[in-house]
Computed example of a mutant assay.
Amino acid sequence: MSEGDAELSAEAFVEYCETQARLLLGKVDQMEAEIDELLSDLDAEMAEIRERLDGHADAVEGTVTPGPDGGLDVAAIEDLEADLEERQAVAAAEQSRMVAFQDLAVGYTELAADLPDAADGRAALKRVLEFETERDAPAYFPDRQTVLEAAAESDDDDS
């Protein structure tokens, strides 16, 4: 047992898990705001396209000749549609990512609630390491070191 092991406590890991959960939920709030803004932009663009199409349909009598001089620019509409579909796919991917962050936050919260049952700090550490390994937690914290990363770094230093 090294000197650092004596300082380990289940309470410290509870606090760590609660902090991680709060950080994740903060990121979820940020992502949610960004997604809402993107969806609002998409809705506005869809309304604009509908308005253009409806306005064009009302103004046209007879056969429509596509093109800049002859009426509806089909290529431009198709480009807009492709752009919108791409941006909708980005929004859907961001929503999935947001759910993954929420799930990890819930996991940390549940782990924090269970850790006081750990016999000691080493047992709590083991449970946190297992949790972070199973959930690939370091991938969610590019700017913050997780316990798993710190332990791996410590193992590397001991080698």
Results as ranks from 00 to 15, higher is better:
Ser159Asp: 13
Asp36Phe: 06
Ala124Trp: 00
Glu78Asp: 14
Asp5Asn: 11
Ser40Tyr: 00
Ala59Ser: 13
Pro66Ser: 08
Gly121Lys: 01
Ser2Glu: 15
Leu8Gly: 10
Gln88Met: 07
Asp120Arg: 07
Ile77Arg: 03
Ile35Pro: 02
Ala139Thr: 00
Ala6Gln: 01
Ala47Asn: 08
Ala92Asn: 10
Asp69Asn: 07
Leu8Val: 06
Arg52Leu: 11
Ala59Leu: 05
Leu115Pro: 01
Pro138Glu: 11
Leu53Gly: 10
Ser159Val: 07
Asp79Gln: 14
Tyr108Asp: 14
Glu61Asp: 07
Met46Pro: 00
Gly107Ile: 00
Asp79Cys: 13
Gln145Tyr: 04
Ala75Cys: 12
Ala123Gln: 04
Ile49Tyr: 05
Pro142Val: 09
Glu51Val: 05
Asp103Gln: 15
Ala123Glu: 01
Ala113Thr: 06
Gln30Ser: 11
Val74Met: 04
Arg87Gly: 13
Ser159Phe: 14
Asp158Thr: 03
Glu153Met: 06
Ala59Met: 08
Leu23Ile: 03
Tyr16Gln: 12
Leu111Phe: 04
Asp155Thr: 05
Cys17Asp: 13
Met46Asn: 07
Thr65Phe: 00
Glu78Pro: 08
Gly4Thr: 09
Leu80Gln: 08
Asp114Leu: 08
Asp158His: 08
Ala89Asn: 05
Asp5Pro: 00
Glu153Ala: 11
Leu25Thr: 01
Glu78Leu: 13
Phe131Ala: 11
Asp73Ile: 01
Val147Met: 10
Asp136Cys: 13
Ser154Trp: 02
Gln88Gly: 07
Ala150Leu: 11
